[in-house]
């Protein structure tokens, strides 16, 4: 722990933007106007044409004058997103499906890569070159832990599968003998 007392007046620029009016009663809107009282009446900028599918919040009546056209909704993730946009931003039915759609979209991305004859370079995409250079031990430990968990899971599932298979065979044998 370090106590490091600083004389405020020794700090360059101390107090040059001090504003005694800025207390909790002071409005944060720098320009107080009544324009919001007039509702959605301002002169709108030219509307950008929608040349791709754009989902918009149902908490507004229209598209904003400009919008992004990155990654329009496609595939299964797109279907989930379209469903999510039937609900307002106030609803979990809006946000939780969007998170699900994001995860589905990741799988779609991998399939798309493979369909284009390109297998994703996970090592490079995860930036492991940087980890290898600056935190080799941490990376090795992380990968070892992942391998151990994944390997353990595979072993457990295969052992469990074996047990189930044996149980099934026993059941069939029992059925045969009973006949």
């Amino acid at each position: 722990m370090q106590k490091h007392v600083i004389d405020p007046k020794s700090v360059p620029g101390w107090g040059i933007d001090a504003d005694p009016q800025n207390d909790p009663t002071y409005p944060m809107k720098p320009n107080r106007t009544d324009v919001e009282q007039q509702g959605y009446t301002w002169e709108r900028p030219t509307q950008q044409p929608a040349d791709v599918e754009v989902l918009h919040s149902i908490e507004r009546p229209n598209l904003s004058a400009v919008f992004g056209t990155a990654s329009p909704p496609v595939g299964l993730s797109g279907m989930i997103r379209r469903w999510a946009f039937r609900w307002s931003e106030n609803e979990y039915n809006h946000w939780l499906p969007l998170i699900l759609a994001d995860r589905v979209n990741v799988v779609e991305g991998i399939i798309e890569d493979i369909a284009h004859g390109k297998f994703p370079n996970i090592w490079k995409e995860k930036g492991y070159n940087a980890s290898w250079k600056h935190d080799r031990t941490g990376l090795v430990l992380r990968l070892a832990a992942f391998t151990a968990v994944a390997g353990g899971l595979v072993l457990w599932l295969s052992a469990d599968g074996g047990k189930k298979k044996a149980k099934r065979q026993k059941h069939y044998r029992g059925a045969y003998y009973e006949e």
């Binding site: 007039q38 959605y40 900028p45 754009v54 919008f67 931003e89």
Partner: peptide
């Protein structure tokens, strides 16, 4: 946009004409 009622009040981080996907 600099024109909507929020921009006119200096709330340029809250423009209403730049994001159709969420109003917040």
């Amino acid at each position: 946009c600099g024109r909507c009622s929020f921009c006119q009040q200096g709330l340029f981080g809250n423009c209403h004409e730049s994001n159709p996907m969420a109003t917040a």
